[in-house]
Design a binder for these strands. Structure first.
Length: 847
RNA sequence: GCGGUCGUGGCGGAAUUGGUAGACGCGCAGCGUUGAGGUCGCUGUGGGGUAACACCCGUGGGGGUUCGAGUCCCCCCGACCGCACCA
């Protein structure tokens, strides 16, 4: 008997799959296709255990689908542009390109031993000129289709990374990568017209039945649809060419409670007025500088400036309202102007109390007429309230009904229009960085902005750049900018901005369908493989990456690079949980925490006997040293152990805790399976007992494991495999039955532990590669037991049980139940009031 | 503040969706093998109670619906996540 040696068998079978081109994906009209994709990694240089979990889940699906007759596409690539490469160049010297490609080579070497069923021939990195050149072609097509434009915009400027960030990349007022406080700057920037699709992106969420509700909710909130009324307040005297102030409100029903009209400091009318009013100008400057970080916004005092302008109330020309500039009004939402209704909006109320402006209630709760004091009355829109003097004649109605009535009223009267508004802004894609996809346009003195010709693509990044000073190396490159105008041929200058790296990951899934195509996609290949049937990745991409990808799929459809059926790129989405680990801490002589790697801690002690404090499991991080290295795990136990353990214990959508004991237990289990296989292989043609039982257990396992995989219940599937293994180990069945069982066990384990499974399959004369074998099918007849054991409850509590033939009729079951000892005992306390028999399930005797 | 998810043994977690709560794994205990330990094998393991049964309690807390509730409804407590001056 040999012992389980993962190092040897894993390499052996990886070579076999490789030589057999087992996982090469080739379109085949005779097979249903299945496209499995895990979010591709950033090439940091080392894989972490989270990658192992993510890619193992995808691999389980991919291998399972292959064995059920699907033509599977399961590719891998690298999200390779971005800041860390430049940071490394700045800190350690070297070139971002070398750094990136070296990291990719290292990570590929670390990933391949996992034995993933990936078609490596499709591999690419987004920093390959072949990829970003096609991205530039796509950009030009989008420019032609009016999906990209340039505008002057107040942008989020990250002073550390020295670049612009999209709104989505600003988290609590800080840069998502650098963590620096973001400033506001005005620059000319390129934008994708994602906001034009806001309604469509929102509505289409409804059709994504196999996406987590949480992700859909997050996207819906981000898109932020609201329905309201837009109308104009007429100025008593026009100023700087403005006759009125256009406002947008979602609560037009509160118009009778209007207190003042508020406008943003960035409103064009205010900007015009600033020129001749230094006080106003300094106020606006103060507001613009204003807080961008969350705490400051939270605490921010309401600030206002009375412009002295007056407007007429649309329902009563004699009623004049003052116009104030207020710091809480945003120019890029709605019209940048509002009317304030302090009684029913806390912000407006705070403002009015501070500047002593009137507060008028427009409705009351049905049971409470107390006027608003310092807390605005803001009931749910679905709640009925009592209206004071409503202009559209309402008395008691819900807020929503009142809003609808008011919009109707205003439209009929002709002074306002119902309007749907979105929170989603256009996606600013310009980045003042080197290591990104160059924006393929040229600035010509005569022709203006001119797209580069497609035959000149890719616009390549120059290699001879330096990172000794901050800012964009493309900007200061001596010659790279110089080019000919594609329109007039005169000397011109290239755009030096590169694209946000989220652009790279917004269409890579489509490129995988034809990675070598000389157009962004080959429409035949894309037509065959798209959509992604199962996408797997982290919840952290719920908004940014997934929303951008949905936008790009539509843009690629409009520009002819994807079929209309690929509108939504990801049919099903699964968001997996993190891998966590305990944190081990001691303190130094100054009382500061010192963290220790898991491998340095045994039984809560360091090697020198010092006790460590154990902090509950948290996301692995280098600074807390609670990390395990997949390379070491694979070296110690093999890939199959790492894969199996990452799927056991916790449901895949939840966090899983890495424990040394758990990994050890997995390894032991795989050893037991190995030993069991050896034992069975050594059996003669013995006869035995309990073949039927073993085969029934086997078919039940086939059924349960299949269901577990289909429903992403990997942990439950593994539990069933433990059960089946234990049953087989104890079985006294004949050699032939045991051989059949061990072969099926190998098959059922193969998505999770493919190497061990192949080895067992081969040892028991399985036909060809297990990776090519069809998935076993449970025999329905073997799933149905002849007899069932039903619990007997007395007054709802289980007291006894009854084993009867499955089809025994109800009256017989009742008779047997009433003869049960426990029931007889209970009957001493009184007669049967009710007798419930659910055939095959349960008996309940009510006394 | 608004929205969502979730609370089950010492621990990770199951529960065919209203039908035997605690599958499976870890840990722990006992026995066997080895005989120093570890490995390996077997058995037990929610709490109380009993010689053993019986029996009582038990899915964050309280109430309700039901023959029957971890599962459905209402209230409360706690944890985590997302959003948050968006008019």
């Amino acid at each position: 008997m040999s012992s389980y040696d993962p190092q040897t068998i894993e390499q052996k079978w990886q070579s076999a799959w490789n030589e057999g081109e087992t996982f090469l994906a080739v379109p085949d009209a005779n097979k249903p296709k299945y496209y499995v994709l895990e979010m591709f990694p950033y090439p940091s240089g080392r894989i972490h255990i989270g990658h192992v979990r993510n890619y193992t889940m995808g691999d389980v699906i991919a291998r399972y689908k292959r064995s059920t007759g699907h033509n599977v596409l399961h590719p891998m690539g690298w999200d390779a542009f971005g800041m860390p490469a430049e940071n490394a160049a700045m800190q350690e010297g070297g070139h971002p390109k070398d750094w990136t490609y070296n990291n990719i080579a290292q990570m590929r070497d670390q990933m391949k031993p996992l034995g993933l069923s990936i078609d490596w021939t499709r591999e690419f990195a987004t920093c390959d000129p072949e990829y970003y050149g096609q991205q530039q072609a796509l950009f030009l097509d989008m420019l032609g289709a009016d999906l990209v434009y340039r505008k002057n915009a107040v942008v989020n400027w990250d002073p550390v990374d020295m670049t612009v960030l999209a709104n989505e990349q600003v988290i609590d007022g800080k840069g998502w990568r650098s963590g620096a406080d973001v400033e506001r700057r005005e620059l000319t920037q390129w934008f994708f017209k994602i906001s034009d699709m806001a309604g469509e992106l929102l509505d289409a969420l409804d059709g994504l039945d196999n996406w987590p509700a949480k992700v859909k909710t997050m996207q819906a909130n981000w898109i932020g649809q609201s329905r309201g009324l837009q109308f104009s307040f007429e100025l008593t005297e026009s100023t700087h060419g403005f006759d009125g102030v256009e406002v947008y409100t979602t609560r037009p029903d509160t118009l009778m409670g209007a207190s003042f009209v508020g406008v943003s400091a960035d409103h064009p009318m205010i900007k015009a007025m600033e020129a001749e009013d230094p006080n106003l100008a300094s106020f606006c400057a103060e507001v613009r500088k204003g807080a961008t970080n969350a705490e400051a916004i939270e605490k921010a005092e309401k600030l206002g400036f009375d412009t002295g302008l007056k407007v007429k109330h649309p329902l009563n020309p004699d009623w004049e309202l003052p116009v104030w500039v207020a710091n809480f009004i945003l120019m890029d939402y709605g019209t940048g102007a509002i009317f304030a209704c302090p009684a029913h909006d806390q912000r407006d109320l705070d403002f009015c109390r501070k500047y002593d402006l009137p507060v008028t209630d427009t409705f009351f709760a049905l049971d409470n007429d107390t006027p608003v004091a310092n807390e605005a009355f803001v009931p749910a829109k679905t709640e009925k309230v009592k209206w004071v003097n409503h202009f559209a004649g309402l008395d008691v109605a819900t807020g929503q009904d009142a809003i609808d009535a008011t919009i109707g009223f205003a439209e009929t009267a002709g002074w306002g229009t119902g309007k749907t508004q979105y929170r989603l802004r256009d996606w600013g894609l310009s980045r003042q960085r080197y290591w990104g996809c160059p924006i393929p346009v040229v600035h010509c003195d005569s022709c203006g902005i001119v797209p580069e010709k497609k035959e000149n693509l890719p616009v390549r990044l120059p290699d001879d750049v330096s990172f000794d000073i901050p800012g964009n190396p493309l900007d200061r490159h001596p010659t790279w900018r110089n080019c000919e105008c594609p329109a007039c041929g005169k000397p011109a200058l290239r755009e030096t901005d590169t694209m946000d790296t989220f652009v790279d990951s917004s269409w890579y899934y489509a490129r995988f369908t034809s990675p070598n195509s000389t157009t962004p996609t080959d429409t035949n290949e894309a037509g065959y493989w798209m959509n992604v049937d199962q996408y797997i990745g982290g919840i952290e991409h719920a908004i940014l990456h997934l929303l951008y990808s949905r936008f790009f799929a539509r843009a690629m459809q409009i520009t002819g690079h994807l079929p209309a059926s690929a509108n939504e790129p990801f049919d099903a989405l699964f968001t997996q949980g993190m891998v966590t680990h305990e944190i081990y801490m001691t303190k130094d002589d100054k009382g500061r925490p010192v963290y220790h790697l898991p491998e340095d801690v045994t039984d809560g002690k360091l090697a020198d006997g010092t006790e460590v404090t154990v902090i509950p499991s948290a996301k692995m991080s280098k600074s807390k040293k609670n990390v395990v290295d997949p390379v070491k795990i694979i070296a110690d136990y093999g890939a199959d152990t790492a894969r199996w353990f990452m799927l056991s214990d916790s449901p895949p959508e939840r966090d899983v805790e890495w424990t040394a004991a758990g990994a050890e237990a997995t390894y032991k289990h795989l050893n037991r399976v190995w030993t069991l296989s050896e034992k069975i292989a050594a059996m003669g043609d013995d006869s035995g007992q309990g073949d039927e039982d073993l085969l029934r257990t086997m078919h039940k396992a086939i059924f349960d494991v299949t269901q577990g995989i289909e429903s992403f219940g990997f942990n439950a599937a593994l539990a069933k495999l433990y059960g089946f293994t234990n049953a087989l180990a104890k079985s006294k069945a004949s050699a032939s039955a045991q051989r059949e069982a061990i072969r099926v066990l190998a098959q059922l384990m193969s998505p999770m532990t493919p190497h061990l499974a192949e080895e067992i399959w081969a040892a028991h004369s399985g036909d060809g590669l297990l990776a090519d074998a069809p998935w076993p099918v449970a025999d329905e007849k073997m799933l149905v037991e002849d007899t069932v054991t039903m619990p007997i409850q007395i007054n709802g509590k289980r007291r006894s049980e009854l084993t009867v033939p499955k089809d025994l009729d109800k009256a017989e079951v009742e008779k047997l139940a009433l003869a049960d000892d426990a029931v007889l005992r209970a009957l001493e306390n009184g007669p049967v009031k009710k007798l419930i028999v659910v055939p095959g399930r349960i008996v309940n005797v009510v006394i």
